[in-house]
Write a protein that binds this DNA or RNA. Structure first.
Lengths: 106, 106
DNA sequence: CGGTTCGGTAAGTATTCACTTACGGTAAGT
DNA sequence: ACTTACCGTAAGTGAATACTTACCGAACCG
């Protein structure tokens, strides 16, 4: 399993970080704009955005003193690829449903 | 965002739990079989399997005293649907790349 | 130049949680 | 019935981390 995927999952594991990610996904915005309306302080949002950025889920672009954050497809793509890796086997497991013989000793 | 998705992501956020999940995905097995070779104790694996089960990522089936765990496509499907929800917007954001005007005041 | 806005970083704290050992309970074997 | 194999749960502990306030530099405005 890729290290990139691990960081992406870890990043999305936090509820506040999911809120921030969804907000950024909906509309690229500056840090202050993102923090407004969220139940945490602005520095907390900065810290979360750093994690999301390192996970490849958002990108940052300076615009004056403001930093505009927008969604990054790369982290999303890594997650999708990782999931699809199991998708086939999961369906395969359920195809042969009744015929579960001893299957494993020990 | 669905509560099911939140639990699935939380479940996969732990490295040991990812190991267990990948192992179960590769081959349905009993708890002791899964725990063998892992760097944690068997009770720890039990606790992790409980979390994965509540997240809809694995299912459990009794076979004598053994509990056979196998992958559950439902949690995987929920994750995929959630990801796809952002996939389109992420690509859309990157399609208009150069033309990022003021875009947001504040 | 001050003054203001914007946002990243440091330090400290509290909560969460992954892990351990100990235990109990159920099913199979003799 | 006794023993063994298998596994879930309880309780306690240590480490990871999400949050706060305080502080800092950097870019616009008068």
């Amino acid at each position: 399993m890729d290290n990139q995927v691990a960081r992406a999952i870890d990043a999305l594991a936090d509820p506040t970080r999911r809120l921030i990610f969804e907000r950024v996904a909906e509309r690229a915005a500056a840090v202050g704009k993102i923090a407004a309306g969220l139940p945490v302080s602005r520095p907390a949002v900065s810290q979360h955005l750093k994690v999301l950025k390192e996970a490849g889920l958002v990108t940052e672009r300076a615009e004056g003193t403001r930093r505009i954050y927008r969604i990054d497809p790369r982290g999303l793509a890594a997650l999708r690829d990782w999931l699809d890796q199991y998708w086939a086997t999961a369906l395969g497991d359920f195809k042969d449903f009744a015929d579960q013989l001893p299957e494993e000793d020990q």
